[in-house]
């Protein structure tokens, strides 16, 4: 064995070209600069386009009036703004608590058990369900039997999308809480539920709030699930419990209006669509920035 050892280490090997390896490296890093430049340029382009085209639509009427009927310019998307807020709120009321307590089960009780593993797998699948399928689900579940489009069915579709998002992020955040904290709370004689809600959840609250806000923002910008559920409406939201027994009946909302108006041949409607797009971008980016500043600065866990 020693004989082969000395043999090999003395026997020279044919080296690879350093110059060639360098060249490959230079080519790759250069193209990575170019790729990044393109990617960042295009993303900037999108934001700038929306701002430039949308800012002209923003006036008092945009935020206070109903959309124009016929060919008269003017009007706004006030009913759609209200509708989007209500639909999103409805989804959050259902989706967030379910996701939150579900995450508590997964991280505090279920852990690596068979039930929890199964639920986690299902959560991942639901996370990947296309949003238009969620819309179709709400349509078939609620709109078909009641013969009425409704904001309520839109909320259900959005809650279905929000639920796995919230569950996953909340579980991740809860898993970051060190076990010592759980043990010391239990060692004080606290019952499990108090230890969990009072200590674990409290320790993870910044992450939980961030996760919840981002989950809400994410569904607020959805369009596809609303196509067959909320539909849209030129009127104000008439009340939470409309003629169909669900709230509102067809409910105006921002994304569907943007979509509809963008398909119209009238410049003033297209202008409104850009104004709505700007509002969505500002809201989404704004909430992201504020959430980051508030909760990520002094990241607790």
């Amino acid at each position: 064995m020693t004989a082969t050892t000395t043999d090999l280490s003395r026997c020279p090997m044919a080296p690879r070209s350093v110059r060639r390896r360098r060249l490959v490296n230079t080519v790759i890093t250069t193209s990575s600069w170019i790729a990044a430049a393109i990617g960042i340029f295009v993303m900037g382009w999108i934001v700038v386009t929306v701002v430039v085209r949308g800012i002209g639509a923003w006036n008092v009427a945009f935020f206070t009036q109903l959309p124009p009927t016929g060919n008269d310019p003017g009007g706004g998307l006030a009913n759609a703004i209200v509708g989007t807020l209500v639909i999103t709120f409805g989804a959050a009321v259902v989706g967030l608590p379910l996701g939150f307590f579900g995450a508590i089960y997964l991280s505090e009780f279920g852990r690596a058990g068979r039930v929890a593993t199964g639920i986690r797998a299902v959560t991942n699948i639901v996370l990947g369900v296309p949003s238009i399928v969620a819309g179709m689900f709400a349509y078939a579940l609620l709109v078909l039997p009641s013969h009425h489009y409704s904001g309520f069915s839109a909320s259900v579709a959005l809650a279905f999308i929000m639920l796995p998002v919230m569950t996953r992020t909340a579980e991740d955040v809860l898993n970051l809480v060190p076990n010592e904290l759980r043990e010391s709370a239990l060692a004080m004689g606290a019952p499990r539920w108090r230890a969990t809600l009072g200590v674990v959840v409290k320790a993870a609250r910044a992450g939980l709030i961030t996760g919840a806000i981002l989950a809400v923002v994410r569904v607020a910008g959805e369009t596809a699930p609303l196509l067959f559920t909320a539909l849209s409406s030129p009127y104000w939201l008439s009340g939470f419990f409309g003629p169909s027994g669900y709230f509102g009946g067809p409910t105006a909302n921002l994304t569907k209006d943007i979509y509809d108006f963008s398909q119209q041949p009238y410049p003033h409607l297209i202008q409104l669509a850009w104004g709505g797009s700007l509002l969505i971008i500002v809201a989404v980016l704004g909430v992201n920035v504020v959430t980051r500043l508030l909760f990520q600065r002094g990241k607790e866990w």
Binding site: M1, T4, T5, L8, S9, M13, A14, P15, R16, R21
Partner: peptide, 23 residues
């Protein structure tokens, strides 16, 4: 490191891997 710096045949490579592990 062997693959990166040198041109080696498959058998040379495994021979040298074995040798390095022995050393």
């Amino acid at each position: 490191g062997l693959r990166m710096h040198f041109k080696l045949s498959k058998s040379e490579l495994s021979e040298r891997v074995e040798d390095a592990l022995k050393r």
